[in-house]
Simulated assay, not measured.
Amino acid sequence: MVKILVTNDDGIHSKGIKAAVEALQGLGDVYVVAPMFQRSASGRAMTIHRPLRAKRVKMEGTKAAYALDGMPVDCVIFAMARFGKFDLAISGINLGENMSTEITVSGTASAAIEAATQEIPSIAISLEVSREKHKLGEGDEIEFSAAKYFLKKVATAVLENGLPKGVDMLNVNVPCDANEKTEIAFTRLAKRMYKPSIEERIDPKGNPYYWIVGTQCPKEELEPGTDMYAVKVERKVSVTPINIDMTAKVDLDELRRALKL
């Protein structure tokens, strides 16, 4: 029987992970291991300085489900140690889009990347949200029907056909106004999604504290063919192939000559 792992970075209580489980029904045995708490923007962080705690939870549509007090990457490692090799790993459905080279910051994408390093075909899937407050919530007001439709469509294709050589995972982003007739665009990563900065505030005792904040790159700066252009301008579902070998495709002898080393 096909074994499918589902994880996320929004936490075990997110409606997005429950939507993912629902979308995958009939494709195989579904196992869930997800963080106990919100872990957005955790990247490939791993818990190595303290023990991990795991709690088995009831989740309809799964063979087994665990909440882990660690990071998304920890969840993948725990799942493989507990249940063995999987045929497919799904990370999501995330609340808020994960696009551009900044996917390396995303706990959602990083969990899929971790699974890919274990030679498991992987899909990270995120749903654009129309209001900023929804990105760190549990998704109570979010409609997941389109994201579920595209997750099942892509997951079925990967299970039936596998990923092409040189592709380790797929990063999928679904516009908030998508429906079953929305087109799919195969894209490359945009350079940046946000322009980050630091906002200084003052606490009641007069001491400064700081928030990392960011403004999204304006639409006029987006390049055609990128994931951000597809979602933000064309209103299409973006599917971006990811290779975890980040070695630059250059002639190494030419590099040596250029650096004079």
Results as ranks from 00 to 15, higher is better:
Lys55Ala: 12
Val33Ile: 11
Ile12Trp: 04
Thr62Gln: 05
Val76Tyr: 08
Ala65Ile: 11
Leu24Asp: 00
Asp9Thr: 08
Gly70Ser: 07
Phe78His: 10
Ala34Phe: 01
Ser42Thr: 10
Lys15Gly: 12
Lys55Pro: 00
Met46Gln: 11
Asn8Tyr: 03
Val76Glu: 05
Gly26Tyr: 07
Leu52Ala: 10
Lys15Asp: 04
Val21Tyr: 11
Val21Trp: 09
Lys63Asp: 02
Asp69Cys: 05
Tyr31Glu: 00
Met36Asp: 11
Arg56His: 03
Asn8Ile: 02
Ile77Pro: 00
Ile17Gln: 05
Gln25Arg: 15
Met71Ser: 14
Tyr66Val: 04
Ser40Ile: 15
Leu52Tyr: 09
Ala41Cys: 05
Val73Cys: 14
Lys58Tyr: 09
Ala19Gly: 12
Ser14Val: 05
Pro51Met: 12
Ser40Arg: 12
Ala19Asn: 10
Tyr66Ile: 03
Ser40Thr: 14
Leu27Trp: 05
His13Asn: 14
Arg44Cys: 05
Val33Glu: 01
Lys63Cys: 12
Lys15Ala: 08
Ser42His: 01
Leu52Thr: 01
Gly61Trp: 08
Gly43Glu: 01
Asp29His: 09
Cys75Phe: 02
Ile48Ser: 14
Ala79Asp: 11
Val30Met: 06
Ser40Asn: 14
Lys18Thr: 13
Glu22Gln: 13
Met71Phe: 14
Pro72Arg: 04
Val21Gln: 09
Ala64Asn: 12
Arg53Cys: 02
His49Tyr: 09
Val76Asp: 03
Ala45Phe: 06
Asp29Phe: 01
Gln25Phe: 01
Met80Gln: 15
Ala65Phe: 09
Pro72Gln: 07
Gln38Cys: 03
Met59Thr: 11
Leu24His: 00
Met71Glu: 14
Gly28Gln: 07
Gln38Val: 06
Met46Lys: 15
Val57Thr: 07
Val21Thr: 11
Lys55Gly: 03
Tyr31Lys: 02
Cys75Met: 05
Tyr31Trp: 04
Gly43His: 01
Asp69Tyr: 02
Gln25Met: 11
Leu27Arg: 06
Met46Ala: 07
Ala19Leu: 11
Gly61Cys: 10
Asp69Gly: 04
His13Glu: 15
Gly11Met: 02
Val30Tyr: 06
Arg53Asp: 08
Pro35Tyr: 00
Ala65Pro: 09
Asp10Tyr: 08
Met46Leu: 15
Pro72Glu: 05
Ala64Tyr: 04
Lys58Pro: 01
Pro51Thr: 06
Met36Arg: 08
Ala79Tyr: 13
Asp29Cys: 01
Gly28Pro: 06
Arg39Tyr: 02
Val73Glu: 09
Arg56Leu: 02
Ala19Ser: 15
Asp29Ala: 10
Thr62Ile: 02
Asp74Leu: 07
Ala20Gln: 07
Asp9Lys: 03
Ile17His: 05
Ile12Ala: 00
Thr47Gly: 08
Pro51Leu: 04
Val21His: 11
Ser42Trp: 05
Asn8Cys: 15
Met46Asn: 03
Tyr31Asp: 00
Ala20Pro: 08
Pro72His: 05
Val33Pro: 01
Lys58Trp: 07
Leu24Tyr: 00
Asn8Ala: 14
Lys58Glu: 15
Lys18Trp: 08
Gly61Glu: 07
Ala45Gln: 12
Met36Gly: 04
